[in-house]
Design a protein around this nucleic acid. Sequence first.
DNA 1: TTGTTGACCTCTT
DNA 2: CAAGAGGCCAACA
Length: 131
Amino acid sequence: MAKSKKIKQTTAIPILLINGKKEASFFEQVYDVVRLIPKGRVSSYGAIAAYLGSKKSARMVGWAMNNAHQIQPKVPAHRVVNRNGMLSGKAHFATPTLMEELLAKEKVLLKNDCIINFAAKHWDPTIELAL
DNA sequence: TTGTTGACCTCTT
DNA sequence: CAAGAGGCCAACA
């Protein structure tokens, strides 16, 4: 094969390369699903992880969101919350209140950093995209 | 290179 | 009912 050194399968896949490239990593799939979240709806890390294959990979979804800030097109990370409907990642946004602001613009009401009527607004890819 | 950490979830005690 | 531990994969020191 062309490469003199063996390709490290487990090693980092450059996120920037994923953008518009053939190699589809776990991260890109996360971004893709998150972009599909309709306005006014919210999803959860576990739901996305489960849709991709393993619900135990929910942590990776969180990591993907962390990198999502350097990803383009922009990923609506504010529409992704934890299983409790709580804005666990709001602190990682540009401003601690940015996530609330974005959700408020989508008519998503919050109370104590928790989404009101979360069950009704929960957009589960496993169900919505299960066609 | 190994080991620890991380925007989580589920099971077990 | 509450608290603890395990598990997943990737990035960082």
